[in-house]
């Protein structure tokens, strides 16, 4: 059961795990650059409006942000567990760990929902009269806040769908101890989502 490496090499004609991993890494590069564009914008606008960014960041809810950071970090851990279990042939444990990952991802989204609605109640959303009355720096801060956390949230949502599909694959034994590159690659994607949040959290919530 733990001979996955030899298994993948012997059946190289139909399957190329290394190739699949290269492909996934390339895809992750593109994701990093996608967010990179936003980080670049953040850097420029923060440089242009340091004071406003400083003040606006104080308005964000650090507790909710920190909770979400914990949730995502834990989910990355359960993701690794799931991969490790399937490698050991522990199908049920793997399914449980993956299920937990999905649950944590959903918890993240629920949390995010409350955070956004709270901001909406304060009249802080793009194009709001409240923001229109404020400075350019505040507008840009919230514009970036919604764009970046929104795009990240979208990635979490895609992750939930992706991991759910893989979960079904495990149940149906399409992903099995001999062939779990799909789970492996989904794990890579999930870690990326996690890492991006690790950057978003301090940039918006902590650096005040």
């Amino acid at each position: 059961m733990d001979q996955t490496h030899t298994a993948s090499e012997s059946s190289a004609v139909h399957r190329d795990d290394v190739g699949a991993r290269i492909g996934m890494w390339l895809f992750l590069f593109t994701e990093l650059i996608l967010f990179g564009g936003l980080f670049l914008l953040y850097a420029v606008y923060r440089y242009l409006h340091p004071q406003e960014f400083h003040e606006a960041a104080k308005e964000l809810n650090v507790v909710l942000g920190a909770a979400n950071t914990l949730i995502l970090l834990t989910s990355s851990f359960t993701m690794v567990m799931s991969i490790s279990y399937i490698g050991e042939g522990e199908k049920k444990k793997s399914i449980a760990a993956l299920g937990l990952t999905i649950a944590l991802a959903l918890a993240f989204l629920v949390n995010k929902y409350f955070e956004w609605t709270a901001k909406f109640h304060h009249g802080l959303y793009p194009n709001s009269p409240e923001l229109a009355a404020r400075s350019h720096g505040d507008n840009l801060f919230y514009g970036l806040y919604y764009s970046m956390t929104g795009l990240h949230g979208l990635h979490v949502l895609v992750g939930v769908v992706l991991l759910s599909v893989v979960l079904v694959y495990i149940v149906k034994d399409k992903v099995n101890p001999d062939n779990f590159i799909v789970l492996d690659n989904s794990g890579l994607y999930w870690h990326l989502v996690d890492i991006i949040w690790i950057y978003l959290f301090p940039l918006f919530y902590l650096i005040t």
Binding site: Y45, H49, P126, A132, S147
Partner: peptide, 17 residues
Amino acid sequence: LERFFGVGIFDPEKGGD
């Protein structure tokens, strides 16, 4: 996003460049 929600990142009226 700018057209639908007016996030303002490229709109000079909101400080965008």
